[in-house]
Design a protein around this nucleic acid. Structure first.
Length: 554
RNA sequence: UGCCCGAUAGUAUAAGGGUAGUACAUCAGAUUUUGGUUCUGAGUGUCUUGGUUCGAAUCCAGGUCGGGCAACCA
């Protein structure tokens, strides 16, 4: 088999750098800001950064970009670390931009000394006004030409806490008429008398992103600093600081963030859903967060596979949710234990069945040649799915109907003899006969049936709550629609069925195990599940070509 | 009126001057004790106009369309 070599643009750059001898190995970093939970977009970045350093022999640092004490919290740090590990990656060094506050401060002093930075007394409104617009040049601040000595002293006083928030800032001195707005004397230090989650009250001046990220990359000798497209215009500034500071030349490369249909990938918006209680926290199973996906029953392997298949490029994209679903189904099909659960029951009475009960042996996973079997109790009174019976079936309906025959999975073939209704005409029971010689494993009946149904013995059934999830939004691109994205929330994204009937084996369900409820979908235990009250989340449905056909006909 | 990115089937990605390929999705069929899985097959694409070249998705120029840039956020 020919080895297919298909590189994404970053791999090409890296291979080029390696071949050219620019680097002997590479260093990447994953730089989350600890102000929210990780989502699928971050997962893509994680797979990219860690994947690249693994492929090309190097390592990846986990660096928290914690330069804004007012939005960042330790709680987020812990959850982010947990999510990265769960995804299956281990960082070389755990670092924080705040580790470099002293060094960053010295960098700022250096810039001032060399005439590349100045203290501005203007407030943010004035600074914004003087910045101009994309099509008109800005104007110089009246504080732009202060002496080095004065700048040094004022900056020192800023650091010492002499001024209130917003009273003064430190700005890089570049060009107020620069076509790139970011080069128009960007603010690099601001005053914030705020408690930092790591440095406490040591500082009251904090560097901005542009004066922290690139320098942190440089300090760590990150060879390839990979970020998303919105930072493209920042690259010019990134390089400017490296040049003026004369420090290790990390290079920034940008790729398009991964969007997924029927959801949103903005931390700000996700936070809104959490705060305004549209969802049950960051790890609500409908959220595109790593923790939400985990709670829903997604496997780390399936998320990695998704990132892999979706690929990486520089063009804006909205990847179809169906690819993600394909990836989980593929993984879960291999590992999930099969169990029978009836959601909406109708009672079947086997009129010719006399034994109290027996046990039939059913495989745990037909995909797994080494998989085990379990004994499932079978008896005279069973539940089957109400949808699996129709009094007047359409063509190609090969489930149960009056006079029709189906196999009960792992057990016998049965025939529907009589439909029992209540006074209102509702079907309340099906009287059936079973074919004794049709038992699974030693079927001598020679009867062929088209349908096989899941079932559960009434007397042995246990109950559980199941939670069925649908897409969180009704439109493919909620952020792209007019108006507020919340207008497009799918109000039917969660359906709770308080009590379904399950085979007894599910009594022993455990948290990390994945289950396939036969013909229903893949399920996993929710974090709130207890021994007294089992709660299962539906991770994803099974593909259902019958339902699809029904939809087409209606 | 500025600067910067980008454009290949429905979607996401390959092809780096030489037959436009893969996956998901879609459709059709086979197998199946899950209408699942598996297997087979099908259709659909290079934004546009010029140029260079024997030959262009690829190189060049103009245009069109989409996105980003005026936070003391990252």
């Amino acid at each position: 088999m020919a080895e297919e070599k298909s590189l994404n643009f970053l791999e090409e750059i890296i291979e080029h750098d390696l071949n050219a001898g620019k680097h002997v190995s590479i260093v990447t970093r994953f730089p989350p800001e600890p102000n929210g939970y990780l989502h699928l977009g971050h997962a893509a970045s994680i797979c990219l950064n860690f994947g690249l350093s693994k492929k090309y022999g190097g390592y990846t640092n986990l660096r928290f970009d914690d330069t804004n004490p007012t939005t960042e919290e330790t709680e987020y740090v812990e959850n982010i670390k947990n999510d990265v590990r769960w995804l299956g990656f281990e960082w070389k060094h755990e670092l924080y931009a705040s580790d470099y506050f002293e060094q960053l401060y010295l960098f700022a002093i250096k810039l001032i000394r060399e005439g590349y930075a100045y203290v501005d007394d203007n407030n943010s409104e004035t600074i914004a006004a003087e910045k101009g617009t994309p099509t008109t040049p800005g104007t110089n601040s009246k504080y732009r030409n202060r002496s080095v000595e004065e700048n040094l002293q004022l900056f020192e006083e800023m650091k010492a806490g002499k001024y209130k928030d917003g009273e003064r800032v430190l700005r890089a001195k570049i060009d107020m008429a620069h076509p790139n707005m970011l080069m128009r004397d960007p603010v690099i230090y601001r005053i914030k008398h705020a408690h930092h989650h790591r440095t406490g009250d040591n500082w009251c001046i904090y560097p901005l992103y542009d004066f922290a990220h690139g320098q942190s990359d440089s300090i760590e000798h990150v060879t390839h600093s990979i970020c998303t497209l919105e930072f493209v215009p920042h690259r010019e500034l990134y390089d400017w600081f490296i040049e003026k500071l004369n420090i290790y030349p990390s290079r920034q490369y940008e790729f398009a963030r991964r969007n997924i249909s029927y959801t949103i990938m903005s931390k700000r918006k996700l936070l809104q859903l959490v705060n305004e209680k549209y969802v049950d926290g960051w790890d609500d199973p409908r959220m595109p967060t790593v923790s939400g996906l985990r709670r829903r029953g997604y496997t780390a392997a399936s998320i990695r596979d998704f990132c892999d298949r979706a690929g990486i490029a520089k063009r804006e994209n909205v990847t179809e949710l169906s690819l993600l679903e394909f990836c989980v189904r593929e993984d879960l099909n291999k590992i999930a234990l099969r169990r029978m659960v009836v959601f909406n029951p109708i009672k079947v009475v086997l009129t010719n069945y006399n034994e109290d009960n027996e046990f039939v042996s059913v495989e745990d996973n037909p995909e797994d040649a080494n998989g085990g079997f379990r004994d499932v109790p079978f008896s005279k009174e069973l539940y089957i799915e109400r949808d699996d019976f129709m009094e007047n079936p359409p063509k190609k309906f090969f489930r149960l109907f009056p006079g029709g025959m189906v196999r009960l999975k792992g057990a016998y073939i049965i025939k529907c003899d009589e439909v029992v209704k209540d006074d209102a005409g509702n079907i309340i029971q099906l009287n059936c006969s079973y074919i004794p010689e049709s038992k699974s494993g030693n079927d001598t009946s020679n009867i062929k049936v088209k349908g096989t149904l899941h079932w559960v013995s009434v007397a042995h059934a246990i109950t559980a709550e199941v939670r069925l999830y649908d897409r969180l939004f009704k439109v493919e691109d909620p952020s792209g629609e007019a108006g507020d994205f919340k207008d497009y929330i799918n109000e039917n994204s969660l359906e709770i069925i308080p009590a379904v009937y399950a085979e007894p084996a599910l009594k022993n369900a455990v948290q990390d195990e994945r289950y396939q409820f036969l013909r229903k979908g893949y399920f996993a235990l929710d974090k709130y599940s207890t021994e007294e009250k089992l709660i299962f989340n539906r991770t994803v449905t099974l593909k259902d070509t019958w339902a699809k056909e029904q939809q087409k006909n209606s």
